[in-house]
């Protein structure tokens, strides 16, 4: 066997060999860059180079002592939290409808859910500028012509616009995990519930929803993470003076060119994001302890 050609040995199918190129690639182009990013927040940078003997916790301490950082973090948090919950409320009925639908309806729902994934977030943010923006925005046009309002509403460049944009853009991320779980659920459990005297609505909330708790929290964690770190939507829909922690990271790095500050803020963004996601996952696991052995 040892004289077999290398390719044959690689394809032997039991060893780590086939994964080595990918692992090496990720080590060089993910792990090392991440270490660099981390390091840049704790040292003086001069033209991309670390200046020797300037290691300090000072930048991190300064950032944590800065009121602005905390205010931005709070806004990032609540925007992400509210939009995750909104996403869930909008996603669940769609996923449930998909599970009940048949034939062509299933296909249509699936197209509606997947197609936004195929159009860039930029395009969709742009669409919201058009829909929400100014007097000529679609929303204001409609409301004005219906006589429901007299003055155009100011939605664009407010928290509302950011929330709406985030929710719509991340909706498919919530629907897809729910869709799979709801479509493949064991319907005998619901029949059992009805047989035991529960109403359909009662069955929905007592059986269907609890059974989908793992998928719900997987979706919540994912949507929270992508919302918390999204800087495009706040920039485009929140307006020039609107900022979040993620927006700050971008501006410090690309506009202000203060890489040390950018690195510190990015580290704070990433670590708080992980902490929140872990908390969401942990809470979900507690709610779904019956699921533990299945993992």
């Amino acid at each position: 066997m040892s004289s077999a050609p290398l390719l044959r040995r690689i394809l032997h199918g039991r060893g780590i060999w086939p994964a080595v190129p990918a692992l090496a690639y990720l080590f060089v182009f993910l792990a090392l860059p991440m270490l660099t990013l981390l390091a840049f927040g704790f040292v003086t940078i001069d033209r991309g180079r670390i200046v020797a003997d300037t290691w300090t916790l000072g930048y991190l301490e300064a950032a944590l002592a800065d009121d602005l950082v905390w205010r931005l973090m709070w806004r990032s948090f609540w925007v992400a939290a509210v939009s995750s919950v909104l996403t869930l409320l909008l996603a669940y009925p769609v996923a449930y409808l998909f599970a009940e639908a048949k034939g062509i309806w299933r296909t249509l729902i699936l197209v509606a859910v997947v197609s936004p994934l195929l159009t860039s977030a930029l395009v969709r943010a742009y669409a919201w500028i058009v829909i929400l923006g100014g007097r000529r925005g679609l929303v204001n046009q409609t409301l004005l012509s219906l006589g429901l309002i007299e003055q155009p509403l100011r939605i664009l460049n407010t928290d509302w616009a950011v929330l709406i944009g985030m929710t719509q853009i991340h909706l498919p991320f919530m629907i897809l995990p729910l869709l799979a779980v709801l479509a493949e659920r064991d319907r005998r459990l619901e029949e059992a519930s009805l047989n035991l005297g529960a109403s359909q609505t009662g069955t929905f909330f007592r059986v269907v929803v609890p059974m989908s708790v793992p998928a719900i929290f997987a979706g919540l964690a994912l949507v929270f993470a992508v919302s918390y770190t999204n800087f495009i939507v706040p920039q485009l829909l929140g307006g020039g003076s609107y900022s979040t922690l993620a927006v700050q990271v971008y501006e410090q790095t690309i506009v202000v060119l203060d890489w040390t500050r950018g690195a510190v803020l990015a580290t704070i963004l990433l670590s708080t994001c992980f902490a929140f996601v872990l908390a969401i996952v942990a809470f979900g696991n507690r709610l779904a302890r019956w699921n533990e052995s299945a993992a």
Partner: peptide, 23 residues
Amino acid sequence: FLLAPQMMPGMVIGIASLFFGAY
């Protein structure tokens, strides 16, 4: 490790690559 990048926001991967390259 192979699936680790999916936990990283695109922005963080972008900045990390920028800094790593600059180094």
